[in-house]
Write a protein that binds this DNA or RNA. Structure first.
Length: 426
RNA sequence: GGAGAAGUCGCCUAGUUGGUCGAGGGCGCAUGAUUGGAAAUCAUGUAAACGUUAACGCGUUUCGAGGGUUCGAAUCCCUCCUUCUCCGCCA
């Protein structure tokens, strides 16, 4: 969500930004916002003048009543009553206009960073850098569920009976590996100075609309029946929500947090649930990192954040690359975003295992997350990034660590979390 | 889940027969005076959002949130949220 003042002063920049994101259908919204803004201010001027008049008169009545001059007071009362309906009408209109304006402002996309490549959709995302050699072994790598099943590590049939498609039972050493990865990732981030946090797994609707766009909400969030609660799609939601309506002193920044949570997603729309496996599912677990910082620091933090994920995967010998999200693929709230992708020796291509985003002040404006400093108060910047989401990362892990004999070698750093095991065998 | 109490300007607190209360006091903080310097003391100032203005300023709204009654609500009514105490239940 942009600042209405920015739109007022820079309508052409806002329009150009919409064009860059290939959302031409939203161009008329800019004019609409400007018109609603003008109307809003005109109404405010008028209604506030009327209210001012009424307030003065009310004070007069108070004074007269105090002096016992009832008749004079009654006279003024009548005069005010006549104007009352006009104030009411205007107030009503004021509210309508404000609501409409907010609605429009909610769907005008955030201004993207100048460094974001221009492109229509995900096919035009740009590879930035590769880390590690994408190796392909000389034996065949099966589909990840087959690797897991061979190790008695997954039961999708039971999961379908119990919860339906898009759920899983992880079993035995694979389940343990899953927990090991989460624990390892947690400690990895704690060592880098992040504060560990376990947040609420459900959040209220006002937080939901503060942290994501309406479109996202529709396609992602599960609502609890009969309650004003939603299951979180990622701990970013409750972690950024943690700062709703707060003014942070400058010296408390940056806030760097790493959080664990299960994540629940409808996955409605574009992709849907994959038929077999744990690539795209309704429920998974994730270690996340978020940063709240001063606006001038957000790009520095952006680079530090994705680097953390790259380092984590590299510490487990998994080749990765970074892929920059092009303008058309960038969610409306985001200023810049880069995906971390892991190498799949089976598919001989990279696939997404994490996403790092700089939201600028968009979430901060919706949630009123501000910073107080020497030069007054201003909106914070918010960022988030995946440390690791184990079910999906296990695909990369298993494919890259599979041995010719069907066993899985466990990289050194993970062994303490696996009871010292060096490999998982059939 | 049941019964009761409460939510005021960074913190503590005054304010319940509705009217000079957007709100008094204390602490904290800022500036100035005093001092060789500090402490102490004294003085002044100290919420946010929005509108308007070149600016000083002026105005509107906000006393947990949202509605209502009224010319006028921190004060009365309704709904919700949160906290505390007691009881019940339960990882």
């Amino acid at each position: 969500m942009l600042d209405i003042r920015f739109v007022r002063e820079n309508p052409e920049i806002v329009k150009e930004n919409i064009r860059k994101k290939f959302q031409e259908q939203k161009l008329p919204l800019v004019e609409k916002a400007l018109q609603l803004d003008a109307e809003n201010r005109a109404i405010k001027t008028e209604v506030e003048a009327l209210r001012s008049e009424r307030n003065k008169a009310s004070k007069q009545i108070g004074a007269l009543m105090g002096q016992g001059k009832k008749e004079e007071a009654e006279q003024i009362k009548e005069e005010i009553a006549k104007k009352g309906t006009k104030i009411e009408d205007l107030s009503k209109r004021e509210k309508e206009v404000e609501e409409e304006l907010t609605k429009v402002m909610m769907v005008i996309p955030n201004i993207i960073d100048p460094s974001v490549p221009i492109g229509k959709d995900d096919s035009e995302n740009v590879e930035v850098e590769r880390f590690g050699d994408p190796n392909v072994p000389d034996f065949e790598i099966p589909y990840h569920t087959e690797i897991m099943e061979a190790l008695k590590g997954i039961d999708l049939d039971s999961a379908r009976k119990v919860a339906g498609n898009g759920f899983y039972y992880l079993m035995g050493d694979i389940a343990r590996l899953h927990s090991a990865v989460i624990s390892y990732a947690r400690d990895f981030m704690i060592e880098r100075g992040f504060t560990y946090c376990v947040p609420p797994f459900m959040i209220r609707s006002d937080v939901v609309s503060g942290v994501m766009s309406f479109a996202e909400m529709e396609s992602m969030m599960y609502k609890i029946e009969g309650e004003d609660l939603f299951l979180i799609g990622t701990s970013e939601h409750s972690m950024i929500g943690k700062f709703i309506d707060t003014i942070l002193p400058e010296k408390t920044l940056p806030q760097t947090l790493t959080s664990y949570s299960p994540c629940f997603r409808k996955e409605k729309g574009a992709h849907g649930i994959e038929e077999r496996g744990v690539y795209r599912i309704h429920q998974f677990e994730k270690q996340e990192m978020i940063v709240i910082c001063k606006p001038e620091d957000s790009m520095i933090w952006f680079d530090k954040l994705w680097q953390n994920t790259v380092d984590l995967f590299r510490s487990l010998e998994i080749p990765v690359r970074t892929l920059e999200c092009c303008s058309g693929d960038l969610a409306d709230l985001k200023v810049k975003s880069v995906d971390v992708e892991a190498w799949s020796p089976r598919q001989k291509k990279y696939f997404e295992v994490g996403s790092c985003s700089n939201l600028g002040d968009a979430q901060a404006r919706r949630l009123k997350i501000r910073i107080s400093g020497e030069n007054g108060k201003y909106l914070a910047h918010t960022l988030n990034n995946t440390v690791v989401a184990p079910p999906r990362m296990l695909i990369a892990f298993l494919e890259n660590n599979l041995q010719a004999d069907g066993s899985i070698s466990i990289p050194e750093p993970l062994r303490p979390y696996m009871g010292g095991k060096e490999k998982i065998e059939r």
